[in-house]
Design a protein around this nucleic acid. Structure first.
Lengths: 184, 184
DNA sequence: GTCCGCATGTAAGGCGTTACATGATTAA
DNA sequence: TTAATCATGTAACGCCTTACATGCGGAC
């Protein structure tokens, strides 16, 4: 149920955003406050400590003082080491474990991976993602078939919700593959 | 982004399971290990402390020593107070906040609510759930329409994944309403 | 000259995670 | 009698949450 890498979901989100473009902590806060990325966070109490950790790991470097105003602000940009770590993290294969417990992380990885690891690996990610989901859906259906008679009706419906969610994800992934291949 | 009630996701899962039938900690572990409820946990390091907290809150009571064997085991059952708290928790209206940040909790609530709060409220829950999702989907689409030109292709796809997931949930809820109404 | 937004934080607390620990009972 | 399973935990750690704190700059 764990990450095995030093990258929490929030850290990954932050690192990914900074990889797209240097950002200050406040910039990041605004992204989280004003876009659906807000799904991953959150409050200054999480963002600033996470930034600090990422900086201390040497993955980003903060530059003070530039910009139009003389106002105190720290602009963080990705280091070479940070790019390497991010690339490694985004290149990890999709595991069955990921699909069961870390769908959020997987989608975050997908959202950032294309410019970092290349189109080829992005497509491989989507194929693996869809296949892993198929396997898990098969498991879930097997379980449901065996248990549906002893389950309360709403328990069964809740489980069907989960299954349909996974199926939708597999369909989405296959459509995404088509799209990325057609106009790349 | 918080629960505002003393019921964490895991605590709710445990309380719900015990409400269906008295359970020992080990029984709960087995449920989490062998069924899709495992999505919510987890390890003894989480279950036993959670059980302890729930017991100290007076929501469950542990009985030692009965059963066929003389083996040390504690069977927990819901107290009157626990049933009341659970009913209150399950009766809470669906908020926009819930839909954005606590889909897991919502599904868990749905899975347990029918026997506790009655069919009428369960159906109301599903209607509110679907309506809240519709509203959120509209927000997301508005955002996507405005931003899709400046988003990287995979960022857009990731966001479409989220939107489609929500749409699937609304459809599921409306089908569930039909099912529950048709043979109740 | 005051208020709001920019910009960055800290402190306390809660809870889940991993890993380890312990002893009793049953099946081989 | 040895191993697996039953059954219950503890300890250290990490990270997020809520709430609070601070100080500058521009607009009016």
């Amino acid at each position: 149920m764990a990450q095995e890498t030093g990258l929490s979901t929030l850290s990954l989100a932050i690192l990914g955003l900074i990889s797209q473009q240097p950002q200050t902590g406040y910039d990041l806060r605004k992204v989280f406050l004003t876009t659906p990325m807000g799904h991953f966070s959150s409050s200054p109490g999480a963002i600033y400590p996470a930034l600090r950790r990422i900086e201390q790991a040497g993955w980003v470097r903060g530059r003070t003082g530039q910009g139009k105003t003389r106002r105190q602000r720290v602009l963080y940009e990705l280091t070479a080491k940070g790019r390497k770590v991010l690339k490694q993290h985004l290149s990890r294969p999709v595991t069955g474990d990921d699909v069961v417990w870390h769908m959020d992380d997987l989608m975050l990885r997908f959202g950032f991976m294309d410019p970092i690891v290349g189109r080829e690996r992005t497509l491989r990610f989507l194929r693996d993602f869809a296949d892993r989901i198929d396997a898990y859906v098969a498991d879930l259906r097997r379980y449901l078939d065996g248990a549906k008679d002893v389950m309360p009706p709403c328990g069964r419906l809740a489980m069907e919700n989960g299954i349909q969610g996974y199926e939708m994800n597999a369909q989405w992934a296959r459509r995404a593959i088509q799209e990325l291949q057609s106009h790349s």
